[in-house]
Simulated assay, not measured.
Amino acid sequence: MSRSYHGLLQLGNPECENKMQKLCEYYYPIKHSLTIPFEEKAKHMEGWQEKGHALLIEAGLTLDAIKRSVADAKIEFRDGVVELLKLLEERGVPVLILSAGLADVIEEVLRQKLPRFPKNVKIVSNQMVFSNDGCLVSFKGKTIHVLNKNEHALDMASSVRDQFGETKGQSDDNVSVKRRTNALLLGDHIGDLGMSYGLNYEYQIAVGFLNDDVEKFLETYQNAFDIVCVNDAPMWGVVELVSQICPSRGH
């Protein structure tokens, strides 16, 4: 459970909101620790997610509450994000959004905050299961946290619309991603570098966004990513990169 989703959702349950805040305060430093071994950190991240999910169910989160929370939230994309998504769609490039957050929230944000939902976007994240009256009752499939985003990513993406806006079966849908030989990876955590594991790419450019504790983590990010953007930098550099390496259709 990232701090951003905790701040976004209006749970309407002060007790659960307080518990959620305490989870964030405890686990957030663990998430960014450079000394905790990977396996130990992964167990902590899975525990954070599962406890957070349980609190959302306990709080009685509803689908209507998600829609209302997104509508009321002051969400701003980085400068250039809308243009980047438009450019990738125009040039027929599949986009996988791999997130340790909540798929239903991410989809609602894209639907409400973009001019229209991009046809080439697939969301791979924790999926909610709602009752007939719209109440959250459980979560579907494997818990996704910041250190295991890549696991089963293609399988989970199979039921989402493909790059042409259609819904296809798993085998056909996965082909549009698996046949790609190059990858552009964007992430804001060192663990995000694992998002492309399982993709049989020949070349990859990894762009890291370092938003907090820049002096502390800059060298680590520079050693891990090909390009590092700091302090909530805009997306214009990535837009220019895509313009140069992704040819227009018909060329």
Rank of each mutant, 00 (worst) to 15 (best):
S2T: 14
S2H: 08
G7A: 12
E15D: 15
C16R: 05
E17L: 11
K19L: 10
M20T: 06
P29V: 06
K31L: 14
H32F: 13
P37M: 01
M45N: 05
E46V: 13
W48E: 07
A54I: 09
L56C: 10
A59N: 08
G60Q: 09
L63Y: 06
A65D: 07
I66C: 07
K67R: 15
R68F: 15
S69D: 02
V70K: 09
A71T: 09
D72I: 13
A73K: 07
K74Q: 14
K74C: 12
L84M: 04
R91N: 04
V93T: 12
V93D: 06
P94F: 04
L96W: 10
I97K: 01
A103V: 08
V109I: 15
Q112M: 14
Q112C: 12
P115L: 08
K122M: 11
I123E: 00
S131H: 01
L147D: 13
K149R: 10
H152T: 11
H152L: 13
M156T: 12
S158W: 05
R161M: 09
F164V: 14
F164H: 15
G165S: 10
E166K: 15
K168T: 10
V175Y: 15
V177R: 05
R180T: 06
T181I: 00
A183C: 11
L184K: 03
L184Q: 00
L185C: 05
L186C: 02
L186T: 02
G187M: 04
I190H: 11
G191I: 05
D192V: 09
L193A: 11
Y197V: 13
G198M: 10
E202H: 02
F209H: 00
L210K: 04
L210E: 05
N211A: 04
D212P: 01
D212R: 12
L218N: 03
L218M: 04
A224V: 08
F225T: 07
V228Q: 01
V228T: 00
C229T: 03
N231K: 08
D232P: 02
W236F: 02
V238E: 00
V242C: 06
Q244K: 11
Q244F: 07
Q244M: 10
P247E: 02
